[in-house]
Design a protein around this nucleic acid. Structure first.
Length: 426
DNA sequence: TCTGGGGTCCTAGGACCC
DNA sequence: TCTGGGGTCCTAGGACCC
């Protein structure tokens, strides 16, 4: 089947067990061994090497549930190192940009490329991409090619699943796509999560082929327009286009589980100050202002015998701002109002809402325009960028950080700190 | 002992306005 | 005997993604 039959051609490039692969680039001892990278606080499994999967470890599971396997097979368990993964992601994406002018960076380890109008053998082209990314960054990727994004995701799934495909699966070369779709379970589709897949199975819909054959009205009713779009895309009709420029965030969250539960308001205020500081940095990096801020706190819901208390409060700010001290001050007032003593808090966080671009606000007469505050924040961001996060910060962010998350086995920031660069002994 | 974090979109229902 | 109705905005909740 020729690609010219379709209006569009997408490739989805997805890094194989990305976090584990990043760690392996700088630590070859991890090659060919079961390796797991854990979530924040060393809680759940998030990235697993093939060897780890083969001995029975699974994703998104608390690591302590796997402790027998970890011990038996000497599984390497690593804390997550987002500084490293973020930088490696950037390298992969820069490499991919060599291969198509139209690219959408979809997540830290995935990108959609448009192959539309390319007059080459796309399967061979994808293999070249795969080899180049590996050579330039050390990261293995899989590539799926199809006429819609949903089918490209599906093709990528098949590229990963079958080793015979050598990491590339081109659905355009398939004679009978329906036969392929009838072997893919609905739960593996992009846009169908665990709730929907259970519902679909109850209704007798098991495969991608089943879903694409269902009546439009029925899907619309049961799965909203999002589900209908998935069905169209499975039929080869492209409904979701590439998004070239990342749109600014409409909300910004910063929240953490604590390494150990904390009880005092003092420690909570310190933690929340830090969360506001992080969120404000993100806010300024997209040149926006925030108009209201939520703060929430939670006890440990897994400890059923402990008293539970969860609450949140949303505080409107007097005027939209990106000035950290001001946002901290209002957020802490909210925290003081919902805090109750006598509970062991496990998690807290802040949520910025009503985010507006800075440029949209400048003509408003009532907005205080304070160039000194802006200049101050710019200078602080600049210094922290160069000398490390929190080189300059608010006093309310504290020093003790009793609530700090567990990170028992974190690798070095090999690519972004001169002091942590890899040394080779010959 | 130990259970992640950060986003998006859609829909229904209530408040409010004229 | 009694009945308005349509539009917009906001929010909470539920689904999804990585």
């Amino acid at each position: 089947m020729l690609s010219t039959q379709y209006n569009k051609v997408f490739a989805l490039v997805d890094c194989n067990h990305f976090y584990v692969s990043c760690e392996r680039v700088f630590n070859p001892k991890l090659l060919n061994k079961p390796v797991v990278v854990l979530s924040n606080n060393d809680g759940c499994t998030v990235s697993l090497s093939t060897e780890a999967k083969n001995i029975g470890l699974t994703r998104a599971v608390p690591i302590f549930e796997h402790k027998d396997l970890v011990k038996k097979y000497n599984v390497q368990t690593l804390s997550s190192n987002y500084t490293l993964y973020g930088d490696m992601s950037h390298r992969v994406m820069m490499t991919l940009k060599q291969f198509s002018p139209n690219i959408e960076i979809y997540s830290i380890d995935e990108a959609f490329l448009s192959f539309h109008g390319f007059k080459v053998n796309l399967t061979d082209y994808a293999k070249t991409i795969r080899d180049t990314v590996f050579q330039w960054t050390g990261i293995p990727v899989s590539i799926g090619i199809a006429p819609t994004k949903t089918l490209a995701k599906l093709a990528n799934h098949l590229a990963k699943k079958d080793p015979d495909n050598s990491g590339v699966y081109n659905l355009l070369e398939e004679r009978n796509i329906d036969t392929v779709l009838s072997h893919v379970e609905v739960r593996n589709l992009w846009g169908v999560g665990s709730r929907y897949s259970k519902m679909l199975n109850r209704e007798g819909i098991y495969t991608a082929y089943d879903l694409k054959s269902v009546d439009d009205q029925w899907i619309r009713k049961k799965m909203t327009v999002m589900g209908l779009r998935t069905a169209y895309e499975l039929r080869g009709l492209s409904c979701i286009d590439l998004e070239h420029a990342p749109s600014p965030r409409k909300s910004i969250v910063c929240s953490r589980s604590f390494g150990k539960s904390i009880e005092s308001l003092r420690d909570l205020r310190e933690a929340v100050s830090n969360f506001v500081t992080r969120a404000s940095e993100k806010l300024r990096s997209q040149d926006s202002l925030v108009s209201s801020v939520s703060v929430f706190l939670e006890t440990n819901s897994f400890k059923v015998n402990e008293p539970q208390y969860n609450n949140s409060i949303t505080t409107p700010l007097p005027k939209p701002t990106s000035y950290t001290p001001e946002i901290i001050s209002h957020t802490l007032k909210g925290l003081d109002r919902i805090y109750k003593s006598g509970y062991r808090y496990k998690k807290a966080g802040v949520l910025f809402l009503g985010i507006i671009p800075n440029k949209d606000i400048q003509l408003d007469f009532f907005i205080e325009h304070n160039p000194r505050k802006n200049a101050l924040m710019k200078a602080v961001d600049c210094i922290n960028e160069q000398f490390g996060s929190d080189t300059i910060r608010c006093l309310s962010s504290g020093f003790k950080h009793k609530w700090k998350m567990n990170q028992n086995n974190v690798s070095q920031r090999y690519t972004t700190r001169w002091t942590e660069i890899l040394t080779v002994k010959i």
